[in-house]
Amino acid sequence: MYLADEAWPDLQRYFRQESLALIPLGSTEQHGPHLPESTDHVIAESLAREAAARTGYLCTPTVNVGVSRHHRQFPGTMWVSPDAFRTYVRELTENLTYHGIDRVVYVNAHGGNVDALREVAKDLHADGTCYALEWMWDESIPGLVDELFEHNGPHGGPKETAMLQHLTDRVHEDRLAEARDGGTRDIWNASGTSQNGAATYFDARDNSENGVFGDQTDATAEKGEQLFEAATEQLVELSEWLAAREETALTPADRVGSAR
């Protein structure tokens, strides 16, 4: 069920029967010369809406702009501060709790959002507002990602390229070699990323001239379909697990020594 497509009486029936919502979140930022700036939010929304269709749970509209200041040197990148993002996500979540939702999955497709989402989830849990979980699609299927790609990358690499090849027609197929050759193929072994255990970079451009990492020529729509199906299965299982949990298991533990 997609919230924005429904009339309020139908949503009222949902809120009376169910207590879980999926909130997709991504970014609008550079993804190299070959991918659209919508990459992250297209992936997040596609996964959330597919999981909602398979389970009947509620999917909200997508948060399209996230914590992306580290991509600002590339034209078109949009971002908000971590403080603004946390406030927005918390208030958006509180909208849902007003209607009766008490458990939420943040369906995330942008690494820059992770810390802020986890902090919001901790705060919502601590004050008893609801039980929220941050879920990052590629972190749910690391074995498959490693199996499919020899040179993956944390941003604009073959996994995101393959997903967009499967989901859209917006990939510049003629620029895949350019993306690989103008970026950083193996960020994990690149020099100049740390000094004595301290990270020495802040922005994507510090480590990649064109802003992306990995070997994009290794991506195919068929691999993207494998990733999409595997990640959707993980999200469906997580949603069903969370929906089935007893309410008492979702509240903060009592202080040590206190009586229930």
Rank of each mutant, 00 (worst) to 15 (best):
residue 116 A to R: 01
residue 134 E to D: 14
residue 108 N to Y: 01
residue 126 A to H: 11
residue 134 E to C: 14
residue 110 H to G: 01
residue 170 R to F: 09
residue 142 P to Q: 06
residue 86 R to I: 02
residue 95 N to I: 01
residue 125 H to W: 14
residue 157 G to V: 02
residue 158 P to W: 10
residue 76 G to E: 12
residue 98 Y to M: 11
residue 149 F to G: 14
residue 157 G to E: 05
residue 146 D to F: 11
residue 78 M to E: 10
residue 132 A to S: 12
residue 121 A to R: 05
residue 124 L to R: 07
residue 102 D to P: 05
residue 153 G to I: 06
residue 113 N to Y: 06
residue 124 L to K: 03
residue 133 L to M: 14
residue 142 P to S: 05
residue 80 V to C: 12
residue 101 I to R: 10
residue 108 N to V: 01
residue 95 N to R: 14
residue 109 A to Y: 03
residue 95 N to F: 13
residue 126 A to I: 03
residue 136 M to I: 11
residue 78 M to A: 10
residue 87 T to W: 07
residue 166 H to D: 11
residue 172 H to D: 13
residue 145 V to A: 01
residue 95 N to Q: 15
residue 116 A to D: 04
residue 124 L to G: 07
residue 156 G to P: 09
residue 98 Y to E: 14
residue 160 E to Q: 13
residue 84 A to C: 10
residue 138 D to G: 01
residue 80 V to R: 02
residue 132 A to W: 08
residue 90 R to Y: 03
residue 75 P to Y: 06
residue 88 Y to D: 00
residue 159 K to V: 10
residue 85 F to V: 03
residue 88 Y to G: 00
residue 167 L to P: 08
residue 112 G to S: 03
residue 71 H to G: 05
residue 141 I to Q: 09
residue 97 T to C: 14
residue 134 E to H: 07
residue 172 H to R: 14
residue 106 Y to A: 06
residue 137 W to V: 03
residue 84 A to K: 02
residue 70 H to G: 03
residue 148 L to V: 07
residue 97 T to L: 07
residue 146 D to N: 15
residue 110 H to M: 04
residue 174 D to R: 09
residue 89 V to F: 03
residue 100 G to C: 11
residue 110 H to V: 06
residue 113 N to E: 01
residue 80 V to H: 02
residue 171 V to G: 09
residue 90 R to F: 08
residue 108 N to M: 02
residue 76 G to R: 10
residue 127 D to W: 13
residue 91 E to C: 06
residue 160 E to I: 03
residue 171 V to E: 09
residue 147 E to V: 08
residue 83 D to G: 07
residue 82 P to Y: 00
residue 142 P to E: 04
residue 147 E to S: 14
